[in-house]
Write a protein that binds this DNA or RNA. Structure first.
Length: 952
RNA sequence: GGGCGUAUAGCUCAGUGGUAGAGCACUUCGUUGACAUCGAAGGGGUCGGGAGUUCAACUCUCUCUACGCCCACCA
């Protein structure tokens, strides 16, 4: 095969990917090998590849390819997340565009539609992951709602329930009135919003007054509309202003509701008037105050429906004009907030906020302007309403304890370590996890309730079952009564009650003759993805994969899902597997836009990774991600840099072309070939060192260091020096030298291709197969090739020689530029102070010195009279006679510059060494090194001075 | 209010207790058959300010300033 002149990524990427996948090489059979496991964070089923996925998956692929090449049974589990809210929203939005809505469909039909959508577009991202080159185990692709996951979710729910770790509770939840579902604390984001702070008079009832005679208490609020459900006013127990009225009553002006003034330390005397109105049904603080004041959750007044429109409270005291109003102004229409303020003002209970205008006149405002930290639903985008509902909660506090311990003990290593604090802080302050969602798309909760949910909780008229019992089940034996109850309580058509159910199947006994109806709610998406590290391996079955691949070795995720996903995996994994889900947790940052801002669709600054792949190739994008991934830092997008790595790929391509053209083929051995020539021994040493630092970097999860290591070896060492230095050997008369060089260079190129493969899988696989072999082809593909094992030591002698060679050639080139000598000019050199070892070096390297250094002869004879350039390298001075007119001043300046540099360093070293404190207290090695360096620098300066003297 | 992070060359970023590096950009030179998606040689930084520890600090400690992120019930 002859390599094309130009490297075209698009031409090879799809071909190799298909080949790898169809030949099953993403997970070769290696039952005897040591397992290595990563699970991929399942992307949302409706998602498409964004730049963050490109980072996340590139890092994982680098690790998994590396481990696979090291011979391990490397498994990278892949799958999709059903993404409850997100996916349901997508389908609903599509329906809205067609003028339909979800409720036009039955639940079954709607879910069917979501499945259709999932089938249609759900796989988009998997195709995109393939374009990125990700070597996942597609043969076992999973979905958080496939049969196996469903079974796992069911078991987890039931087991947690039986252990008392899942329970049902009535308390305030974060209610999203747009999506009409409860959401967890994590799904709430606080935004600073401009709002108002209204001050009101709350009149004291029954003729009571404060000690100062005032007949009202001033309260202030940012949410005036909730006063329709106020149930108390709280003051601090020690607040002298109010002590006398504690226990007395307020009569709320609008509702006429009479309620108590209670003492509670929540009220801060320093803030405002020191008195605060209490709405236990619509504020998290007030809920707690209300509980302390003796209100049962069930008695707390609720004034909103699920869409945050005002509804009548249980006591019926909200005036009719408010019923049905939205909580606040929406689409230009005033809501309950505006009306409450207006009425309070009309009634004389609003205390205006007074400011002074520029002319010194006083101006009255209804409210004091304020910035308010307002909770928003991260999906629905509307203000969250704390709402009193029955929901399922996971006792996260109990589950968190061993997960905290696992990190403390080192069973889980978090990389970078700085994230530990964040993890601990969250875990130690964890709140009950609300896992029920009022959605249709997701894992239906396996609970069946009796005639009233309240009764179900109190009287145990509920079933929690791990078998799917259907929508409604009966309890009892009187069929007619059961049918009647079904109709009365649930509006269930009596004919729909399924009497085929076996006695006792529900796990409850009873003669109540009632119907249990299945909980309509579904589970939080993260409830199922928390099981990913073991459920994808077959749990609850005791599979071979499960025993071999759990715990996973590593999890790579963005820090943005540390709480959502990683922490929950830690909790569930330890709870159900009695072991950590993964040994290491690597957290990477965000990929930001070029200006450092967060990418978002609304800002229109998202970068499409597929566009970058089209432009520069997947290998270049991957290498960019790796090279930029330093621990604990976000990555700023930089197209120029991606371009640079495309250039790197081209560079490698051309190096391979050079090899091909010079009869250099694939390596014949895994171990480094034997070599006599210093340049070959040197490059083998460079491979040994590169491999060591590459392995170290990958082991430490330093992707940037790993990428830079292989980059610089390939470009600087191999291309810029080695290939140049061997050109004369390949084309020279010494057949043995040429053969050795061909063998070594073929071996080195192979090592590069292998070491680079995890980063740039496509071009390396292509080159792997392009290099000539004796048998006409490779025995195996690069993806399963063996990671290098040079079995060679670093050859210090060869390193010293080539190092000298490089310095000499570089010095000649630099001198030419400074003295305005055309770079191609052939020079001769006369050596002063050279010894026989140097003479031998020069003999060995004469071809390279001639061809690469343009030094056609080096002699130990004195230089002829006339202008010269002089180079001081190590112990010798190289005197280069200059033909024709030469600018002596330029050469003097050049030498002086070098001299100054030497002297400066010598002076600094001398200063240090003449400080007795340094000599006495510093480490002996440091003193030793300083002495040696000083001697070198002084000798160098002397030679430079001598050279200057010779110039006259 | 807590917690974390970041401030190093024009830009984007590495970095180590012993007087600083990469990529891009910039300057000069270069069409010798791998590569102009290139080569050669360069210029450019008092490593955010201040204090301390140390023989020695860009690197450790404290503090200040600026920016960013996360968590938190301030009515």
């Amino acid at each position: 095969m002859t390599l094309d002149k130009n490297f075209d990524p698009a031409a090879i990427e799809a071909r190799w990917y298909n080949h790898w996948e169809t030949s099953g090489q993403f997970r070769p059979d290696r039952d005897d090998a040591e397992p290595f496991t990563i699970v991929n964070p399942p992307p949302n089923v409706t998602g498409s590849l964004h730049i963050g996925h490109a980072l996340d998956n590139t890092l994982q692929d680098i690790i998994i390819r590396h481990e696979r090449m090291k011979g391990k049974d490397a498994l990278w589990v892949v799958g999709m997340d059903h993404a409850g809210i997100a996916t349901q929203m997508v389908v609903e939005r599509q329906m809205n565009e067609r003028g339909e809505k979800r409720t036009d469909y039955s639940r079954e039909d709607f879910v069917e539609k979501v499945w259709e959508w999932k089938e249609e577009s759900g796989g988009a991202i998997t195709g995109q992951l393939r374009r990125l080159g990700c070597s996942m185990d597609w043969s076992n692709e999973r979905f958080t709602m496939d049969d196996g996951m469903n079974e796992a979710v069911l078991k987890v729910f039931v087991d947690l329930y039986n252990d008392g770790l899942i329970y049902r509770d009535k308390r305030l939840v974060n209610w999203d009135p747009a999506l009409k579902t409860a959401i967890s604390d994590l799904e709430v984001e606080t935004r600073d919003v401009k709002g108002g702070f209204w001050h009101f008079k709350y009149p004291l009832a029954d003729g009571v007054t404060l000690d100062n005679g005032q007949d009202y208490i001033e309260v202030a609020t940012t949410r005036p509309e909730t006063m329709l459900a106020d149930m108390a006013v709280a003051v601090h127990p020690d607040d002298e202003r109010y002590k006398s009225v504690i226990g007395k009553k307020i009569e709320q002006p609008i509702t006429g509701r009479r309620f108590k003034i209670v003492a509670d330390e929540h009220a801060d005397p320093e803030l405002g008037s020191g008195a605060v109105k209490i709405t236990p049904g619509h504020d998290f603080n007030d809920f707690e105050v209300g509980k302390r004041a003796g209100f049962a959750a069930g008695d707390m007044l609720n004034m909103f429906d699920g869409e945050a429109n005002v509804c009548q409270t249980a006591d019926g005291l909200i005036p009719d004009e408010y019923i049905g109003l939205h909580r606040f102004k929406r689409d230009g229409v005033d809501g309950a907030r505006e009306l409450v303020v207006q009425r309070m003002k009309e009634l004389g209970f609003l205390i205006p906020h007074v400011t002074k205008s520029k002319d010194g006149e006083t101006v009255e405002h209804d409210a004091e302007p304020r910035t308010i930290a307002t909770p928003y639903g991260d999906r629905g985008g509307v203000v969250i309403e704390p709402w009193l509902t029955d929901q399922w909660y996971v006792d996260a506090k109990t589950l968190a304890q061993p997960a905290i311990e696992a990190v403390k003990s080192g069973a889980i290593e978090i990389v970078p370590k700085t994230w530990e604090k964040t993890y601990f802080n969250w875990m130690e302050n964890i709140q009950p996890w609300c896992v029920s969602r009022q959605l249709w798309w997701g894992h239906r909760i396996p609970a069946w309730f009796g005639p009233s949910k309240e009764a179900a909780i109190n009287d145990n008229q509920k079933a929690i079952a791990s078998t799917l019992l259907g929508e409604a089940i009966f309890v009892g034996s009187n069929e007619d009564e059961i049918r009647r109850n079904a109709a009365n309580f649930y509006n269930i058509d009596p004919s729909e009650v399924n009497f085929a159910q076996e006695e006792g199947e529900t796990g409850i006994s009873g003669q109540g003759n009632y119907v249990l109806r299945r909980d309509p709610d579904v589970l939080d998406t993260w409830f199922s993805s928390a099981l990913w590290p073991f459920a994808t391996l077959g749990w609850p079955e005791e599979t071979k994969d499960l025993s071999r691949h759990y715990p996973n070795d590593l999890l790579i995720s963005g820090f943005d899902i540390l709480f959502f996903w990683d922490a929950r995996m830690a909790m569930q994994g330890i709870q159900f597997m009695k072991d950590v889900p993964w040994k290491r947790l690597y957290l990477h940052g965000l990929v930001r836009a070029e200006d450092g801002s967060k990418m978002s669709k609304s800002k229109g600054n998202v970068v499409d990774p597929l566009g970058l792949i089209d432009q520069y190739g997947a290998d270049a994008l991957r290498f960019f991600m790796a090279a930029m991934e330093s621990q604990g830092r976000d990555i700023k997008m930089d197209d120029k840099r991606v371009e640079g790595y495309r250039n790197f790929a081209t560079k490698l391509w051309n190096a391979a072309r050079f090899c091909e053209a010079n009869g250099i083929g694939a390596s014949k051995t895994l171990a480094a070939p034997d070599a006599v020539l210093p340049v070959n021994r040197w490059i083998i040493s460079e491979v040994v060192e590169t491999l060591a630092s590459l392995d170290k970097a990958l082991g430490d999860l330093r992707f940037d260091a790993a990428a830079n290591t292989i980059y610089h070896f390939t470009w600087d060492r191999f291309c810029d020096w080695y290939l140049e230095l061997i050109k004369p050997l390949l084309q020279g008369d010494d057949e043995a030298a040429a053969n050795e060089t061909r063998t070594v260079s073929g071996w080195v190129l192979d090592q590069i291709i292998v070491m680079l493969h995890p980063f740039m899988p496509f071009i390396t696989e292509e080159l792997w197969h392009s290099m000539a072999t004796e048998t006409g082809g490779r025995e195996y593909d690069l993806i399963v090739a063996k990671w290098p094992e040079p079995k060679a030591a670093v050859d210090t002698q060869a390193k010293a020689e080539v190092d000298w060679l490089i310095r000499l050639i570089s010095a000649v080139r630099a001198a030419k530029v400074e003295l305005n000598i055309p770079p191609g000019t052939k020079m001769t050199a006369h050596i002063r102070d050279g010894d026989s070892a140097l003479q031998k070096r020069i003999e060995r390297q004469s071809a390279a010195l001639d061809r690469v250094g343009r030094l056609e002869s080096l002699s130990f004879d004195p230089a002829p009279e006339g202008a010269t350039a002089q180079l001081v390298i190590d112990d010798a001075t190289y005197v280069l006679p200059l033909a024709g007119a030469i600018d002596v001043d330029a050469e003097k300046a050049r030498l002086n510059k070098a001299l100054e540099a030497s002297q400066k360093e010598a002076k600094s070293l001398n200063g240090r060494l003449s400080n007795p404190n340094f000599v006495e207290k510093a480490k002996p090695e440091a003193v030793e090194k300083a002495r040696a360096d000083l001697a070198d620098k002084e000798a160098e300066a002397e030679r430079l001075q001598a050279a200057l003297a010779r110039l006259g």
